[in-house]
């Protein structure tokens, strides 16, 4: 299934880096996110769309993961020519990722 069924998300920017906060819709989904939505997996998902590496941070207290997508915004802020110059909806692009929910 797509992540959108297991998680919600919000994203923002810092210069040319976008952050995507990914939050489990139920606490019991969180381990699945930790296991399957790795930095490497997210980097593959966005391949060709971002120029830098992907970092991942865990927030088990909030059942959330935070991803930093470096080089995601065509220079970012005022430089960027993108409609989504601040990466506001990159969060929803991550929710397209397909994961498997263990039984």
């Amino acid at each position: 299934m797509q992540l959108v069924e297991l998680a919600h998300a919000r994203s923002g920017d810092k210069g040319d880096t976008a952050n995507v906060g990914l939050i489990a819709l139920r606490p019991e989904y969180y381990p699945t996110l930790v296991k399957q939505v790795t930095a490497a997996r997210v980097a593959r998902h966005f391949k060709g769309m971002i120029t830098g590496p992907v970092e991942r941070f865990e927030l088990p207290n909030l059942h959330a993961l935070n991803f930093l997508l470096h080089g995601a915004l065509d220079g970012g802020g005022t430089i960027s020519l993108k409609t989504d110059a601040q990466g506001k909806v990159l969060s929803t692009a991550l929710l397209r990722l397909v994961v498997e929910l263990p039984r």
Binding site: A9, R10, G12, N19, L59, L62, H63, A64, N66
Partner: peptide, 16 residues
């Protein structure tokens, strides 16, 4: 809680 969490992770770098 879910809505506040969305705001907490907004523009987040290293959460620690």
């Amino acid at each position: 809680v879910a809505g506040v969490t969305e705001q907490l992770v907004y523009e987040m770098g290293d959460p620690a």
